[in-house]
Design a protein around this nucleic acid. Structure first.
Length: 163
DNA sequence: TCCGTATTGAACT
DNA sequence: AGTTCAATACGGA
């Protein structure tokens, strides 16, 4: 059974992101949509979620400025154990650094699962905060990005990373 | 069970 | 230096 998530937009210089919260924390973060980014349930947001929203907004803007966020909201990630271990490994990639899909695979103890790592990255519900954009292919190629390669290049450039 | 994947590294033009 | 190709783990249908 599925509880509707509370959606709250986050305005940044880059556009309006959309955060979705469950009762346990931030569940999804979406890039600015080309079409409409309409807020739902914002009025009903409990105080707790409004607090998370503050943290999310601050963290997001820090990353967009190329800085490491001081604090993160709690995350409520839905996925398989494998995916969560990948996402967890991704969070250890500090600002200004990059890793290859292969390195992530090694980090989670499955060195051969490089392609599956790519799949898990694509399934990442919270891009930017979970820095899937800092994962490049082994030969330094850009790889891919669910929010669009322009975003990936731009985010990397803000952290001083060249491709 | 089969198919696609945000990979990789080696073997070929 | 560019292209093809098999190996490989996982998730969705």
């Amino acid at each position: 059974m599925k509880v509707p998530l509370i959606e709250i937009p986050i305005a940044t210089r880059e556009g309006i992101f959309l955060a979705r919260y469950s009762e346990n924390g931030l569940a999804e973060l979406k890039f600015p949509q080309v079409g409409r980014a309409r807020a739902a349930n914002q009025e009903k947001a409990p105080a707790q979620i409004r607090g998370w929203q503050r943290l999310t907004e601050a963290a997001l803007k820090n990353v967009l400025s190329g800085r490491a966020p001081k604090k993160f909201p709690p995350l409520d990630l839905v996925g398989t154990d494998f995916q969560r271990s990948v996402w967890n490994a991704l969070r250890k990639t500090s600002c200004g650094k990059t890793k290859s899909y292969g390195e992530i695979a090694v980090a989670i103890g499955k060195p051969k699962a490089v392609r599956a790592v790519g799949g898990a990255c694509g399934a990442n519900p919270v891009p930017v905060l979970i820095p899937c954009h800092r994962v490049l292919a082994a030969n330094g190629k850009i790889g891919g990005f669910s929010g669009g390669l322009d975003w990936k290049r731009d985010l990397l450039a803000r952290e001083g990373i060249k491709i």
